[in-house]
Nucleic acid binder design. Structure first.
Lengths: 226, 226
DNA sequence: TTTAACTATGTTGTATGATGACATTGTACT
DNA sequence: AGTACAATGTCATCATACAACATAGTTAAA
């Protein structure tokens, strides 16, 4: 017995998936039979069915409500949910939209960092800024060091959502910088602005740091538009 | 017994995750104890442990080799790129972090909408608000209508990045609302606040709309913390 | 009558033990 | 030495029971 591919729970997940999206036996938002009935219908144990369901939940196909039942998701996972596209410049999102978002997020984040950063974190941020300036003089990888500087600030904001969102934004920024022609002037801007940001951040001057970061973003936007 | 939040299998997944990446009890590539031993060590049933492991497998943290054992992945996936975790409450990101982000995000967005919304879009937003209030009175799906209201505002901001980010944030909000106990008071807040937001938005009063949205977010935060 | 507490029922979540399937190692027989 | 086979350790699946949760209906108290 049990010829065929892979684990039974995976085959079951496949069968269940096809029952939902292909045969459309269970429309969006509808309730599945309870686990005992459904497992009998599909000729697998409840354990196996539960593993299959659990997988489809992680895929966003199903939704479990304890004590009520298991339901087909209202909207099957959208392309909108796939934020990898956010990091993709080719998705024809305007670069100005991206920096507009940074203009909202980064000043707010640095303000949070002013409130919450530990002394160690501030010291770490200072070191990153120093290193960025040094690499900038020596012709090293200053964009990388610059990003580390900004990421250190995000971390010091102590907001987990921000921390996770940043790499996405960042990789999109990278792609834009790749095709940008005036990288040299951007370097000068970054060095000067970072110094300004650091100045207020070390003093924990919330409003000052917020404005310094806003200025930095405006500088970047203006430079890119030339 | 069993106070505390959420499913035991999810708590177990969290504990196991922290044993791996934080305490580093099991280095990358190493083999975990077998399921019987490990489940005893962690004081959960083997069933529960298997569910936890199964989840971590989908996250790319663990790898199962049938007949051999369960192993820590060679390279832990770059968490930053996986924004699906942003929408996942099980990732144990604090709810306050989420709303802190909305407190930054939404007021800025409604301000943009004031500048850029077409008259048709404003009319659409007005209809959504009306419908939300109506459903709220009739005991319908007011949270859904409320989200449509907010999403209409995001769309009117004409920023593609924002538009794509919103569903992610939104689904995380949904999961939090599921486990929230004072949904009724939240309903009253939403109805009143939406009216306020709409008032300034229709007048294209940027500062007013921004503040109205800030108030709304503060209300939500306070209600959730009770 | 209204409202509060309780009960009944249906559902997912967890526990336990047994058995099957797979991979590796050891061992005996030729 | 080499091959077949047995033993062992592991994950995969099954079956059953009970716990925790959600809701609706019923009963009892105000």
């Amino acid at each position: 017995m049990n010829l065929r591919k892979g684990k039974l729970s995976e085959q079951t997940a496949d069968r269940l998936y096809s029952m939902i999206v292909e045969q459309m036996l269970y429309p969006a938002g509808s309730k599945l039979p309870n686990e005992n009935d459904l497992s009998r219908e599909m000729n697998v144990s409840r354990t196996t069915l539960r593993e299959a369901i659990s997988f489809l939940v992680t895929q966003g196909i199903l939704e479990i409500r304890r004590g009520k039942g298991t339901f087909v998701a209202k909207e099957l996972p959208d392309k909108g949910m796939d934020l990898s596209s956010l990091a993709d410049v080719r998705s024809r999102v305007r670069a100005s939209d991206l920096f507009e978002m940074r203009l909202i997020f980064e000043p707010a984040t640095v303000a949070l960092a002013c409130q919450r950063a530990t002394d160690e974190e501030l010291e770490n941020i200072r070191r990153k800024a120093e290193r960025m300036e040094q690499l900038s003089r020596e012709g090293g990888d200053w964009p990388g060091a610059d990003q580390e500087f900004h990421f250190a600030i995000i971390q010091a904001s102590h907001n987990e959502y921000m921390r996770r969102l940043y790499p996405i934004i960042n990789s999109a920024v990278n792609e834009i910088l790749q095709i940008s022609h005036n990288r040299k002037s951007m370097q000068d801007i970054a060095v000067a602005d970072n110094k300004l940001i650091l100045e207020f951040l070390l003093k924990r001057d919330e409003a000052g740091a917020r404005h310094a970061m806003s200025i930095h973003m405006k500088h970047l936007i203006n430079t890119l538009q030339e």
